[in-house]
């Protein structure tokens, strides 16, 4: 009887292959989004207070490091959105007998929903 040699996966597994790195970035994007949302919640809270508190917080947000964070957060938001939209057809399978709704339609309807929401928010910002 022999003892098989165990080939354990180290903590740097995510660097072993580019697809693993992309997955790690995708998962990490959730953390970045959480921080961004926390900043947004504080902004809304300050907006509910007096003008001075609001202006002070805006000044904090215009700090070069915060601007850099927002640029990074935007990149992660795009990565998060695009990768999850791409993966949705894996989970949602619509089948009518032998016919399967093509992945393209599942992905496209999400982008369509995204555009509609974006247009609604833009209209609200412009017209109110």
């Amino acid at each position: 009887m022999t003892t098989p040699r165990c080939r354990a996966l180290g903590w740097t597994w995510w660097a072993a292959r580019p697809p693993y790195t992309l997955v790690l970035l995708r998962e990490l994007s959730a953390v970045v989004m959480a921080v961004y949302l926390a900043l947004l919640v504080v902004l809304l809270q300050r907006a509910g207070q007096d003008a001075e508190a609001y202006e002070e917080y805006l000044g904090f947000l215009w700090h070069p490091l915060m601007v850099l964070f927002h640029v990074v957060a935007f990149a992660f938001a795009v990565l998060h959105t695009v990768t999850w939209f791409q993966l949705t057809p894996k989970a949602i399978v619509l089948r009518y007998g032998e016919f399967k709704v093509p992945d393209f339609f599942i992905i496209a309807q999400q982008y369509a929903g995204w555009l509609v929401m974006w247009a609604v928010v833009l209209a609200w910002v412009v017209f109110t």
Binding site: P19, Y20, V23, L87, K90, A91, V93
Partner: peptide, 22 residues
Amino acid sequence: TFVGECSAVCPKHVDPAGVIQQ
């Protein structure tokens, strides 16, 4: 955690990642 590489390397296009999410 939906890495998806199981489906990428499958020689028979079984798509285990999709099955698990379903």
